[in-house]
C-alpha cells in the first residue's frame, strides 16, 4: 500500500452515470488486476474504494459509477485536480490459474477490473472470452476496448436491446471455460458460481471503513475462516466461498 497525490489527466462520461478517470502519479504499489484504490474526497470522512481498470508506469485508470455524494464529486473534477489516494489495496486476481480458455464475466460496474486482467491473459496467449452483462443498451461501455485487446466479447442485456437477451449466465452456459473470473453484483456472482463447473475467482464488494485491513468493517465468512474483503479479498477463490 502507498499513499500519495495523483493528478486527474482525464475524466469523462462513458454512459449517463459511468465515468472514466485517469490519474497520473506513483503506480508502483498497484501489482495485480482486481486491486483497488481508496480515494479521499472533500468533506467526506471515509475514502471511496474504486477498482483499478488499467495501469501503466505513470497512470491509473478507474471506471466508476455515480451512486452517491463521493462519486458525484469525482464526476465533477476537472483535469489537473489533485486527489489523495491509497493504492495497491486488496489481493487482486491470480492470473496464473486461468488455464488456456478462461472466461471473464462482468456485470455493470463489475466490468472495469476485468480489463487489465484480460490484457494480461491475452499477453500470455490465452484464449480469452469476456461476457459483459448490462441491463440495457444505454448502459454498455468498454465493449470495443475489450475487442481491441483481442478478446472474444459477448454482450448480454436484460432487455435484449443488444446481444443475448438475459443474464451473463445465459451466455456462460453455452461455453466450456478452463476457468472463470467474475466481478459484479452479488446475485450475478452467485448465479455464475452455480452455472459453471469450472474453478474460478470472484471479486466481492462490501462497505469498508479503512480499505487496508485495520478496522474489520468488511469481514465475511469463508470456508477458510473470517476474511476481510479489503485485505484478504476482494477476490476469493471458488472453493473458499460461503454464500
Amino acid at each position: 500500500m502507498k499513499k500519495g497525490l495523483y493528478t486527474v489527466t482525464e475524466n469523462r462520461a462513458l454512459t449517463k452515470s459511468v465515468f472514466l478517470m485517469r490519474l497520473a502519479g506513483d503506480t508502483s504499489a498497484v501489482t495485480a488486476p482486481g486491486q483497488f484504490v481508496n480515494i479521499a474526497l472533500d468533506g467526506l470522512y471515509l475514502r471511496r474504494p474504486i477498482s483499478v481498470c488499467d495501469v501503466s508506469e505513470k497512470e491509473i485508470t478507474l471506471i466508476y459509477k455515480v451512486v452517491g455524494d463521493g462519486t458525484e464529486q469525482m464526476s465533477r473534477l476537472p483535469e489537473g485536480a489533485a486527489l489523495d489516494l491509497l493504492t495497491g489495496l486488496g489481493n487482486g486476481f491470480d492470473a496464473s490459474l486461468s488455464g488456456s480458455k478462461p472466461v471473464l464475466i462482468g456485470g455493470g460496474v463489475g466490468v472495469p477490473p476485468l480489463f487489465w486482467l484480460a490484457k494480461k491473459l491475452l499477453q500470455e496467449d490465452k484464449q480469452v472470452t469476456v461476457i459483459l452483462g448490462f441491463n440495457t443498451k444505454d448502459e454498455i461501455f468498454f465493449q470495443e476496448e475489450f475487442k481491441a485487446l483481442g478478446a472474444d466479447v459477448i454482450v448480454t442485456t436484460v432487455d435484449g436491446s443488444v446481444g443475448i437477451k438475459g443474464f451473463v449466465t445465459d451466455a456462460l452456459k453455452t461455453l466450456h471455460p478452463s476457468y472463470t473470473y467474475s466481478c459484479g453484483p452479488l446475485p450475478m456472482l452467485k448465479a455464475v458460481y452455480n452455472t459453471s463447473d469450472a474453478d474460478g475467482q470472484f471479486s466481492f464488494e462490501e462497505r469498508m471503513g479503512c480499505g487496508f485491513g485495520a478496522c474489520m468493517g468488511c469481514t465475511c465468512k469463508t470456508k477458510q475462516g473470517h476474511k476481510r474483503i479489503c485485505k484478504d479479498g476482494p477476490v476469493l477463490k471458488k472453493e473458499e466461498i460461503v454464500w
Binding site: G43, Y45, L46, R207, M208, M216, G217, C218, C220
Partner: peptide, 14 residues
Amino acid sequence: DTPRIAECTGGMLN
C-alpha cells in the same frame, strides 16, 4: 453481520 460501517458528517459509525 455486514454492513458494519456507515459514514456521517465529520465521522463514521461502526
